[in-house]
Amino acid sequence: MKFKLQEHMLVPKHEILSKEEAEELLKILGVRKEQLPKMKADDPIAKEIGAKPGDIVKITRKSLTAGESVFYRLVI
């Protein structure tokens, strides 16, 4: 049986940034793509959301101290 990783309570929300969003993010942070944290294109979650190398994935996690925390990863 195949199930959705995203539905598991321990897997945080992953979404691919649009081109504009990605550019905006890099502009705000003032970094090149390569300076972001990375994740592999063959990571199960990347496969599930269809992320390709070069995409930036936004990860929204639940945090005990901050409520919600946002993280970004470059797919390689």
Binding site: L29, V31, E34, Q35, L36, P37, R61, S63, T65, A66, S69, V70, F71, Y72
Partner: peptide, 25 residues
């Protein structure tokens, strides 16, 4: 040296632990 990002907000909550109340913001 590389300028690469490690966290987008320090410790998720951006709190200085010294100024926290026993760990809570």
């Amino acid at each position: 040296t590389s300028g690469s990002l490690v966290q987008f907000r320090y410790g998720e909550d951006g709190t200085d632990p010294m100024k926290s109340f026993r760990g809570k913001a």
